[in-house]
């Protein structure tokens, strides 16, 4: 149940990588923030679309997942430094986990994230793949 409303609320962020930017200081945020931590009330927050390109800052290969992600194991998760500046946590897909290295260029792809049981919703959103 929880993913129905939670997923819908964040569709723009999860499907289209739309975060936010503070036009006062120029910092960009993903996920979106309603308040710039640097400028606080003096900041001016607006929507900002990320290109989906970035570099792997660090990663791990998960062998012991939670039940929801059990069928994927082993799978790669990473912190990606997006081209525009913010960092994002996501999976790296479409590759042998042994191929992934820090510094690799990646791009966003749109994928199924998980199913909430047989009667639940299917969540979709961003994952990343290695750029050739």
């Amino acid at each position: 149940m929880k993913d129905i409303v939670r997923g819908w609320r964040h569709i723009q962020q999860r499907y289209n990588l739309i975060g936010s930017k503070c036009s006062q200081c120029g910092n960009v945020f993903f996920p979106s923030r309603v308040l710039c931590p640097e400028c606080r009330r003096k900041g001016k927050i607006e929507d900002f679309k990320f290109s989906g390109e970035g570099k792997i800052h660090t990663f791990s290969v998960i062998h012991t997942p939670t039940d929801e992600f059990k069928t994927l194991a082993p799978y790669v998760v990473a912190i990606i430094k997006l081209e525009e500046g913010a960092q994002i946590t996501s999976q790296i897909v479409d590759c042998d986990p042994d191929m992934v290295e820090i510094g690799d260029d990646v791009e966003m792809v749109f994928r199924k994230i998980k199913e909430e049981g047989e009667d639940g919703v299917i969540s979709y959103g961003y994952k990343f793949k290695l750029k050739n």
């Binding site: 964040h10 660090t58 997942p65 994927l72 996501s90 820090i102």
Partner: peptide
């Protein structure tokens, strides 16, 4: 919402610190 929902487990977060 932005770590666990992506399939990241708690040990994986520390694993990413270790790797870096």
């Amino acid at each position: 919402e932005w770590e666990a929902q992506q399939g990241v487990t708690f040990p994986a977060l520390y694993a990413m610190m270790a790797r870096r």
